[in-house]
């Protein structure tokens, strides 16, 4: 099967490195485009129940703090992706929103020939529900999906 576009989820962790290596190999063999993907989790304000009556900076201060941590992870993911794909023509895509929803959109997009990811991706900084991200994708993805341990 010839691929035109392979998408791989990266988060800078060891788990995503394995999936990335696999995706790179697959892209080289298929001579196709490779897109790296990182999602900044936008579900935190709802998760902590932010509102202005709590205190001046307790919750918003926390959201800023978490956002900074996620930006650092996005940088780590980008570096991980760029290092693994040196010499290749690639795109790194940084999205925001609910990781499960955003990844499901990618996994169902006509432009995605195969979506490669680790079962443990995005758990390094994620909310508890992200533990079931891989399971949800496996159940609902309409395009080919390659899940690695």
């Amino acid at each position: 099967m010839g691929f035109k576009n392979i998408v791989v989820a990266v988060d800078g962790s060891e788990a995503s490195q394995e999936a990335l290596n696999y995706a790179v190999e697959l892209a080289r063999q298929s001579k196709c485009a490779l897109t790296g993907l990182f999602i900044i989790d936008g579900g935190w304000p709802d998760y902590i129940g932010n509102d202005w009556q709590s205190s001046k900076a307790a919750r918003q201060g926390f959201l800023d703090y978490i956002f900074k941590e996620q930006e650092e992870q996005a940088d780590a993911a980008r570096k991980q992706f760029e290092t693994a794909t040196t010499g290749m023509e690639t795109v790194f895509s940084l999205l925001g929103g609910d990781p499960t929803e955003e990844m499901l959109k990618i996994a169902n997009a006509a432009s995605t020939d195969i979506f490669v990811l680790s079962r443990r991706v995005f758990q390094v900084s994620g909310r508890p529900s992200l533990k079931s991200l891989a399971k949800t994708l496996a159940q609902k993805a309409t395009r080919p999906l390659l899940l690695l341990a």
């Binding site: 989790d41 902590i48 307790a58 919750r59 201060g61 926390f62 703090y65 996620q70 758990q123 994620g126």
Partner: peptide, 19 residues
């Protein structure tokens, strides 16, 4: 929740700790 999020920056907690 308020106490958890108010404490986390001061103790360098990761998002997963707070979650």
């Amino acid at each position: 929740v308020t106490a958890a999020v108010a404490t986390s920056p001061g103790v360098e907690a990761k998002a997963s700790h707070v979650a």
